[in-house]
Amino acid sequence: MQDTRTAGLTQQEVAARVAAGQVNTLPPRSGRTVAQIVRDNVFTRINAILAVLLVIVLATGSWINAAFGLLIIANSAIGIIQELRAKRTLDALAVVGEAQPLVRRAEGTRRLPRDEVVLDDLIELAPGDQVVVDGEVLEADYLEVDESLLTGEADPEPKQAGDPVMSGSFAVAGSGLYRATKVGADAYAAQLAAEASRFTLVHSELQSGINRILRFITWLLIPVGLATIVVQLTLTDMPWRRAVLAMAGALVPMVPEGLVLITSMAFALG
C-alpha cells in the first residue's frame, strides 16, 4: 500500500473530491452587479421628484424650462461612475495571486493552476512560493513563512511539522510540504477578500439629513403645487400652459437639487 500522507492523492481520490465540490474555486469578489448599481443610482428620491416636475414641464412644450432635468443625469452619472470604480477595485482585490503551486500526487509532482487544487492535496514549498490554501505542515526543512500580508507581522514565522499555514503567506526560506485542509471559500485569504469586498451602506449624518429633507419636501410639493395652479387658473385667468409653468417655477426651487449634487460630488472626490 502506498502512503498517501507523503505520496499524494490518486486520480480517483482527486475525482471524488472534485465531485464533492472540495476544489479551490474562489467565490465572486463582489455582490453588486452593474445593473444593480445603475438601478440604485437612477431610481432615487431626488431623481423621482425632478422626473415628475420634468414631465409636467415637458407637457407644456417648453424645453428651455426643462433644463433642470439635466440634474437627473448628473446625479445618476456621478453615483454610477464612483460605484463602478469601487466595483472594479474590489473585483481586482486578491490576497492570493495566480501562482501555480507545486502539487505532489500519486502519479507525480507538477505545477497546477490554483483552482485545480483539491482538499488533502500535498503542496511543496520553496523560497518565493505562495501558500494558496490553508494547510498543515507535514515536512519542514528550516521553513520560514512571511505572513505580513495577513497579520502585519514583518518577521518571518518558522514552521515545523504540525504547524498551520494560511493562504496568502509566502515561503521566504527553507523548504517544506503541507497538506491542504481548507480550500475555496473556506480558506483564510478567501474569507479576508470576501469580507473586504462585501457591499455595505455606510451611515452618513449628511445623507440622513438630506433624505429627511427630501421626504418632507415630497409631501409638501403636492399641496403647494395644487394650490399654486388653482390660484393661477382661477384668479389670474392664465392659460393652462403658463399656469403649469408657473407652478413648476414655484416648485423646482423648493427641491434642494444643488445640495444633493454638491454632496454627491464631495463623496465622489472623497
Rank of each mutant, 00 (worst) to 15 (best):
V165Y: 00
G270N: 13
M265F: 11
L192S: 04
G162K: 00
P127C: 08
A173S: 15
A246E: 07
V230W: 12
E157W: 03
V55R: 00
G174L: 10
G69C: 03
I81N: 09
Q22A: 14
G176V: 01
A106Q: 14
E124V: 06
G79A: 04
V14L: 09
E116R: 13
R179A: 01
I46T: 08
N211P: 03
A59V: 06
D120F: 04
I229M: 12
L220E: 08
G270L: 12
T109I: 14
A92C: 09
R39S: 11
Q36K: 02
G209C: 06
A15S: 12
I213V: 13
T200A: 14
M238H: 02
E195L: 15
L233Q: 02
E195P: 00
L58P: 09
M254Y: 08
H203F: 14
I73R: 07
G225P: 09
R29Y: 08
G31W: 00
Y188A: 10
R88K: 15
L150Y: 05
P113G: 07
G79T: 07
R29K: 15
L226Q: 00
Y178D: 00
R29L: 06
F267R: 13
M1P: 08
G249I: 08
L84S: 07
L112M: 11
W219P: 00
K182V: 02
S76C: 12
V131C: 03
E13I: 08
V38N: 02
A196H: 05
R32W: 07
I64W: 11
L245R: 04
D141A: 08
L259C: 07
A266H: 05
V96S: 03
P253L: 12
L251A: 10
D129P: 03
G162P: 04
T234M: 07
P239Q: 09
G69A: 13
G69T: 03
Q160T: 00
V231I: 14
A173K: 13
P27W: 10
R17A: 07
V231K: 05
A140Y: 01
A20R: 09
E205V: 15
G162Q: 03
L251H: 06
G97E: 15
V230T: 15
G162N: 04
V231L: 13
I56T: 05
A66R: 01
T228D: 10
L214N: 10
R29G: 09
V255T: 04
V96Y: 04
D146V: 06
A250T: 14
T181A: 05
G258F: 12
S264M: 15
L220T: 14
E124H: 07
Q191S: 03
F43S: 03
I222C: 07
V165F: 01
